[in-house]
Design a protein around this nucleic acid. Structure first.
Length: 279
DNA sequence: GCCCAGGGATGCG
DNA sequence: CGCATCCATGGG
């Protein structure tokens, strides 16, 4: 994909390999806002203490931001998604999903923000996850002008279990309280050198992190594509296309990762986005 | 009133 | 090990 990084913006040329609605609504990120300006959709994306506004142009998009280098990596602009889609098109099951969400890119998100966000996501729905995370930013983050930063671990250490409950976190409040006392941002970064399997073990050892949340952190934070997060939607998809014999999520995960290998994460995103669109 | 949402911890056999 | 049960909350 052709793009150009400037001092205060990134220019994207073409509308095939980068589609904001696909990228932001495919469930990998919760902190963004859709706006309308003069009949055109614009998007603001928040990551940690940074933001970027995406505006559509005649022949592509412009990403306005004070941190173009950061968002070049964040939006995974160097990766050639046409190759990925070509490889995955050999699977019949993926043809419609790829046609539907062909502009998806897998974001490289902040590790700590991804950890906290996906602990909250467990057995929850996306609207409520976004609501809770917004409250978390407003209460514990720093004002950055027109938005609040995602709070740091130190900032969240001030919160009690009751505080998290009042944000609407429900029974996940104690997961948050405990996990904040198990790891810090630096430790999460240091785990980056571990192979996927070892790293997964570390993540699952954290309070509130099970197999599915661990896979989401691996995929959306650590950039490991050889994982296939299995949630209720993927489970439905599996039963629809592969039959009802296997009910065990762990086995479904094994089968799907074996089938899609190092492309598992991409396949999962196309399928997840497509399944959710049918409702 | 029941079921579901990007599930995980706990306990029991 | 595998399996069942419980867990907050709001929308459909």
């Amino acid at each position: 994909m052709k793009y150009q990084v400037h001092k205060d913006k990134i220019e994207i040329f073409g509308k095939e390999e980068f589609v904001p609605a696909h990228i932001l609504e495919c469930g990998q990120i919760f902190s963004y806002k859709k706006n309308e300006k003069e009949g055109l959709d614009t998007w603001i994306v928040f990551s940690r203490d940074k933001s970027a506004e995406i505006v559509e142009t005649e022949n592509g998009f412009i990403i306005k931001t004070k941190h173009p280098k950061y968002f070049e990596n964040f939006f995974d602009l160097q990766t050639d998604y046409s190759k990925i889609k070509k490889h995955l098109s050999q699977f019949g099951i993926l043809q419609k999903p790829i046609a539907f969400g062909g502009g998806i890119r897998i974001l490289k998100q902040d590790l700590f923000e991804t950890l906290i966000s996906f602990i909250i996501s467990a057995n929850n729905n996306i609207k409520r996850i976004q609501l809770i995370l917004n409250r978390l930013r407003e209460k514990y983050g720093k004002g950055e002008g027109d938005f609040y930063s995602f709070p740091t671990r130190d900032e969240l250490l001030l919160a009690t279990v009751k505080d998290f409950e009042q944000l609407g976190a429900g029974y996940r409040a104690k997961y948050l309280f405990n996990v904040l006392r198990q790891v810090d941002e630096k430790t999460l970064q240091e785990w980056n050198c571990l192979p996927t399997k070892e790293l997964r073990k570390k993540l699952v050892s954290l309070f509130g992190v099970g197999p599915k949340v661990a896979d989401c952190i691996l995929l959306f934070g650590y950039g490991k594509q050889d994982v296939f997060p299995v949630d209720t939607w993927i489970e439905q998809m599996y039963h629809k296309f592969y039959g009802n014999e296997i009910q065990n999520r762990e086995k479904i995960r094994e089968i799907l990762t074996k089938q899609f290998g190092e492309y598992s994460g991409y396949a999962q995103q196309y399928l997840f986005y497509y399944m959710r669109s049918e409702k």
